[in-house]
Write a protein that binds this DNA or RNA. Structure first.
Lengths: 358, 358
DNA sequence: TTGTAGGCGTTATCAA
DNA sequence: TTGATAACGCCTACAA
């Protein structure tokens, strides 16, 4: 009585199990009347077919999975929605799976492909640092979204779609420089990050160098592993740390909008006005930055385009229409209220001071 | 060559399948040497056991599922993390499942229970308006987190953990009244919402009534179905609408912090200073509100407590230590920068406008 | 300690 | 149009 199966239904209907199966799966060769009758009984008895059993038999699932590491990253929400939508449009179902921070997304993908007979995978978040040999075990095509090129590992066997993080990072830091800022603090990911965080920091360094500004390690705040994430709280904490260390800077570049928003609060509490005393710029182009006060200057990633291209590319791969490629999209510098031209100290309208005397 | 199974491994190792199974599942009765050898071969060949087949046999999974409707709701992120953590602590695994807005969470739960042999379910988000009869089909215990009591439907068969939304809503609106505000606009969920949105709006009405203030329908903005969500963008849009309709109010109550944050931006763009010209209060106690400028006065839900209690209650039910109950937690009025005493127009102390125009 | 065989709940193949 | 029956890949008695 606990687990009602297809057999129970068959018995109750006085038909064979295959007929019940046909009724459930909209098979053509079944008498409409029998079908109706069976469906009726199913509805009444509350029978729910067992998906494990189904998957076991099924060969073709017309499904792909979207594996997301760091689902709470606000930057992903739009991307996830778009990917789901685009996948539906291809008449495929999209299985969304959260990947824990310490979980191996590749292993999970391997399991999932077998379990659900998937035809493709999209990876979002994390840095996907897996040896090529292991990547090859994935028997279905995959695309990595918004992660950006990897340095250390051999790269991906699958496709990838993202902005050129180094270049875009260069762009926004160069913009800050163009405003006259020369002491630009930066909030970045953990020091051992080899992926996005590193690329964006590289872009920062290159931009400084390009302008003939020396790199000052004391202006760099790295996330602390196990403590910080791309969150407002971390941006706040990291900026506090910077301030407490007595760093002096006229602009702050946060490698993510979330960090930038947290930074603004920390600055305000230290009596530093944004942008009068300190310009703040982020990266990503989150909605939140648009509505924040002051609204945030940022490097906007074309999230929707990236998501669409990700799905498009994946289906090209599934249909064997092309080989895995690396697609790059242009980001867009969006200047809003949080940045302004550099002014020397007494020059500032409100005359606030930041960075205490050492 | 495509799908390698346990049989292939057995053959390759020259042993029976049960021996391979034993090796994989840490069974005691197996020769350590054989085990090691088998594991070696498995690693080399990249064999991944099929979970569908496993689940099919499995009886006891020591797993529960967390079904979340509206995963991008920022209020849920902490709750999700806590629930996952607490579940692990019970030595259970927690399967996180996204539920689409138009998807039926109960049906999904029914499927999942069969598919994965779950022992319990936690529902987060949505309004869970399912007839009692269908709820009874769920053969495992379930708890509804943060949703609050339902009016229309018979209620839940499972447990529930939340704040008393009506009461807490009353609390914060009463606070606004206590500051002298009498024209309090409100941003709330869709007009036909029968769950949280309605309860919070009820609280608003009761608070006004209690203070002898007439309810003014022109000060209420409902979300538009299919367009609005609990997002900054919606808060912005709804407030714009209010402003364009020429509504007059000295305070604005948003039934969610996200809406409140978007509202602040809309007010600013209309030249209305917060809190000088208009006080703004939210609901939830999001981190974002804390870091926002001005920081947001809100009714903070004890998210962590609620999450912990949810898990605790679920396991009480699983272990049959108690019957499903409705647990309520007290919210906390957190007064921050976005609210201040009512002043008539020319009265404002700060009067001037700092920051730039628009 | 190991191997064989049966079954988990479906779907697909084949006769009928 | 239907109904047996053989897989699907794994686990687990039970026998060896």
């Amino acid at each position: 009585m606990d687990t009602v199966t297809i057999k129970d239904i068959a018995r109750k209907c006085g038909v064979g199990v295959s007929t019940v199966s046909r009724a459930m799966n909209n098979h053509p060769d079944i008498n409409p009347k029998t079908k109706e009758m069976i469906l009726q009984v199913i509805a009444e008895s509350g029978f729910v077919p067992n998906n494990s059993a189904r998957n076991l038999k099924r060969v073709d699932a017309r499904a792909v999975a979207l594996l997301v590491k760091g689902m709470d990253n606000m930057f992903f929400t739009d991307i996830i929605h778009t990917i789901e939508k685009e996948t539906q449009e291809q008449k495929y179902s999209c299985i969304l799976q959260q990947v824990e921070e310490d979980e191996n997304e590749l292993e999970l993908a391997l399991e999932l492909v077998k379990e659900k007979r998937l035809r493709g995978i999209i990876f979002l978040g994390g840095n996907f640092a897996h040896p090529e040999e292991l990547q090859r075990r994935l028997t279905v095509p995959f695309v990595i979204s918004t992660i950006g090129q990897l340095e250390k590992a051999g790269g991906y066997i699958g496709g990838s779609v993202s902005v050129d993080n180094r270049k875009e990072s260069f762009k926004i830091v160069d913009y800050l420089c163009s405003l006259g800022h020369r002491q630009i603090a930066v909030l970045t990911s953990a020091e051992d990050d080899e992926s996005i965080g590193k690329l964006r920091l590289d872009g920062y360094r290159q931009a400084l160098e390009n302008r003939g500004i020396a790199f000052d390690p004391s202006l760099v705040v790295y996330m602390e592993p196990e403590i910080d994430r791309y969150s407002l709280a971390s941006g706040y904490r990291m900026t506090k740390k910077l301030l407490e260390a007595g760093a002096r800077f006229s602009a702050l570049y946060a490698t993510a909008d979330t960090l930038a928003l947290g930074a603004c609060r920390a600055l305000k509490e230290a009596g530093v006005e944004v942008p009068a005393d300190c310009s703040v710029a982020g990266f990503d182009g989150l909605d939140a930055g648009k509505y924040y006060i002051p609204s945030l200057t940022t490097l906007e990633q074309p999230a929707e385009e990236i998501a669409e291209a990700t799905v498009r590319h994946l289906f090209q791969l599934i249909r064997k229409k092309e080989k895995p490629r690396r697609l790059f999209f242009e980001g867009k510098l969006v200047v809003r209220e949080s940045t302004q031209e550099y002014r020397t100290r007494g020059d500032s309208a409100t005359g606030g001071n930041h960075g205490r005397e050492n």
